[in-house]
Structure formats: structure tokens, C-alpha cells
Design a binder for these strands. Structure first.
Lengths: 245, 245
DNA sequence: GAGTGGTCTAGACCACTAC
DNA sequence: TAGTGGTCTAGACCACTCC
């Protein structure tokens, strides 16, 4: 039990911030330092502690804001839809298309979809938000023959899940999925508007049609760990619980 | 692309450390500061960057050592055994029993096992190592009637999986599992011999007998994120890949 | 006792954001 | 332009580990 000054301050601020609604701007480092009569290093350490606990988001030049993580639950019997998952967690989803172009599938992508390498597919690159905060970034690969009209469709309906349902007459479900925690490289940090070295999730999924079994698309998506609490469920449901020994 | 001094140093050291075998002691902060002609804050930032990337382990008063993460793969068709999983990843597993005592199951544990709350079970608390480094800590709950002789058995055979196979004539497999990333509290940090606030995995699993379907045990285990790269696989296998956009 | 990483002070300059 | 967080210096004391 380290009785350090910065941890005491962090504890106190954590309690204060818990009362505030998410997105509230809070005092800066200089102000914290003055308020508690400590140097800026101690004040900074306290704020960084809160950032590690994912209680605040800090923006260079901007300020520090209270934050709240949203559960992103991956399981076989949940629809593989970003918007639906976010909405079920009680937040507002939004996605913007960064690019949507036909490309030859690299070998790893093609093998996930059971196609020969070099076959053409649309690569849909998007950034997604929860409550207007950047939370996810990555690619969706959709083979030509699955949905040739994807580029036009995506302009009117932002949910790929919905497009597949309506225009490809499919009922998408997860065929396989894989998640791990990584450290953001420069490109990922850019896509997620976070700092290089921040912890991020890497989620790769293959979706298939629930009726015909045909493989529909392959998704490789990075998710900010401070935005989403990714929970992976295997087999039967496990009731929710509060973490502690 | 931030051209900061500490990141340059981190980059350079990362390349150097990559050549070293895991567990090698490397230069300390003071020495790094002197070598690169910077203050200790910059040297420290560089080393912390490497720690965030999970390339080194730092021990207060001890020193800094090169590290290597091991894949811990959770999937329905893999045996739910710590020792086997670690061995398959190419490391040496070891476990020590911290306690093994009969307790009345709290409601959340009991419900996972389909038992009434308050029923008796052994709570087996252990710390596990990979290559003699602390990596995991947590509890295994085994109902009395599943394995009444657990306390004596665990003294001779450290693998619960093996004990269940041999003494309960069961073939354990995962019934359900749930994983998420958390921030270590004081108790967890103590069990894992890491710092409070470090990122850790929380993995909860229910195991059953593959033949009879009977629920055998419930596991709640914390895993150091710098020791293991937990990978969760749902559905069919996804070939391994190298992370990058 | 020597060396380590953890904490902390009291300054400073910078790039960035918001206004 | 004012304020923010990010970086950095040059010191300091501490608790801890290793020998």
C-alpha cells in the first residue's frame, strides 16, 4: 500500500470525477498542482494514473475530460454489428467512411474468406465513434460477388450489417473471431486519434450467412481500450459480476 | 511522427534488446541517461515506453530485464489447462498453492456451477509462473462431491486438469469463458507481484466433463498483460498473423 | 553498502487547441 | 492569445533488492 502523494490525489480526484457526467472538462495539471500544493510532476502523475484507469481522456492542447468505457461484447450469438453493439451498451454509434475501394485481397485476408489470394474485394475503411468520440478504426473486406453495389450502398446506409441483410439477403453472424490487446503503432494511433503506444484492441472476425453458411466478409478492427471494455464470451452466458478478489 | 528524444532512445534500445535473450538484465535509468547525454526524466520515459510495449519488465530496486510475451489461447477446443497452454507456447509452467480450503460458495460462484449458494467447495488459490516469472494468480472452485480428496491430491500433482482426469475420471473441457482487460487493484497487484494500476486480464471459465456434461469447476484468474498475450478464439480457427495496418 | 526504480521539486520550452 | 498537456533538465530523497 504505497502512500504516495500522487496516488492520494488520484484517489480523491477519482471520487470527484465519478460524480460528473462523461465528457465534462476537469481541472488541468497546473491547477491541480496549485490546489494540492505539489509540483507539476506529482499532479501529472495523478492525472496519468486516472488515465491508466481509463477514467479520463486527455487531449494535448485541449484538456482533460471525464470518460466512460462501454462494454463491447463478442460472442457467437450476438449480431456482428458495431452500431447494434454500441447501442445496446447505451451509447450513440456513428461511422464515417474513409475509403471504399476495390483491391486484390492479400493472402491472409483471402484465406480467412476461403478465396484464392489476389481475388478482388472491396476494402471498406472506416472510423467509428461512440458518443462522438473516436473509438474504432479498421477495414472490412467484402468480396465482389457478395455485394457488388457496396460503394453506392454505403453512401445511404452506414451499417454494413444492414446492407448485407437488405441487399445481399443475408443474415450475418460470427463464424470466427479473435481478439487481443496490442500497443498502437503510428498508423493505428493516427486512425484512432490516440497516442502511439496506447493500449488498443485488435479484433479480427469472419462473418457468414446464418442460413447458407456462405462467408460474407472479414473484419480487422482496432478499438481504443479507453473507449471500450471488450468482453469475449465463449459458450454459455456468464452472468455479469463486479471485479475484485 | 513525434521526433521526441525519449522515443528515439526507446526505438534504439528496442532494437538492441530484441537481440538479447528474454530475462537479460539491461542498463538502468541512470546509465541510459549518461550514455545518451540526457536527463533522467528522458531516460526514464524511454524505459517506460519499452515497458508499455511489454518489451521489458522492471522491478523496483531490482533492475530492468528483457521480456517476452507468451500467447495464451482460449478456445472451445483447447484443453482448459494452464500448464498445457503454457507448454504449447514454448515456456515452462509452474504453480504454487497459496491455499486450498473448504468454503461455502458465494452466490456468483455457485450460480456458475449450477449449485445453490452456500454449498461447500474447495477454493484453490494459486500463483502460476511462466519461466519462473509470476504470470497468473487466482482461484479455482471445485465442489466437494466432484473431488473430495483435492487437498491431498494437489500436494503431489500440480495440474488440476490432470487430477480431474485421473481421480475424478473426467475429461475437462471449457463450458464457457469470459475475458476482459482490467486495471490491477491492490489485492491483484499483490498476487501478481506487479504494480497497482498495471493492466491485467481477468479470465473466468467454467469447465465441464466432456463425456457426462457435469460442471467440474469455476476458475477466476488474473493474468499479467506483460506476461501473456491472451488470444480469444471463437468458432473456427483463424490463422496466425502479424499485427499492423 | 551500492545500485535500482519510484517519487518529487522547481523550474523551462514546445506544439497544440480553443477562443 | 491564453491555456493545455508533452517533453525535458538538474537536482533530491526514498524504499527496495542484491551482494
Amino acid at each position: 500500500m504505497p502512500e504516495t502523494r500522487f496516488r492520494q490525489i488520484a484517489e480523491l480526484l477519482a471520487a470527484e470525477f465519478a460524480e460528473l457526467p462523461p465528457g465534462t472538462k476537469v481541472a488541468g495539471e497546473h491547477e491541480i498542482a496549485e490546489r494540492f500544493g505539489v509540483g507539476r510532476a506529482a499532479a501529472r502523475a495523478a492525472m496519468q494514473e486516472l488515465q491508466r484507469r481509463m477514467l479520463v481522456r486527455r487531449i494535448k492542447g485541449g484538456g482533460t475530460y471525464t470518460a466512460k468505457r462501454i462494454d463491447y461484447i463478442i460472442s457467437a450469438d450476438r449480431a456482428p454489428s458495431w452500431s447494434r453493439t454500441v447501442r445496446e451498451a447505451g451509447a450513440v454509434p456513428r461511422s464515417i467512411v474513409l475509403s471504399c475501394e476495390p483491391l486484390k485481397m492479400p493472402i491472409d485476408v483471402a484465406s480467412h474468406l476461403g478465396r484464392p489470394a489476389g481475388e478482388s474485394a472491396y476494402r471498406l475503411r472506416r472510423r467509428s465513434f461512440t458518443d462522438d468520440l473516436p473509438a474504432s478504426w479498421g477495414d472490412e473486406w467484402v468480396p465482389f460477388d457478395v455485394l457488388p453495389q457496396l460503394p453506392t450502398a454505403i453512401r445511404h446506409e452506414t451499417s454494413l450489417h444492414e446492407i448485407l441483410r437488405q441487399m445481399a439477403a443475408a443474415s450475418p453472424e460470427r463464424a470466427s473471431s479473435r481478439a487481443s490487446i496490442e500497443v498502437a503503432g503510428d498508423d493505428v494511433a493516427d486512425g484512432l486519434e490516440c497516442a502511439t503506444g496506447d493500449p488498443v484492441w485488435l479484433v479480427e472476425s469472419v462473418n457468414r450467412d446464418g442460413v447458407t453458411g456462405r462467408l460474407l466478409c472479414f473484419t480487422r478492427r482496432w478499438i481504443r481500450a479507453d473507449a471500450m471494455r471488450v468482453v469475449f464470451e465463449l459458450g454459455g452466458h456468464v452472468p455479469p459480476e463486479g471485479a475484485s478478489a
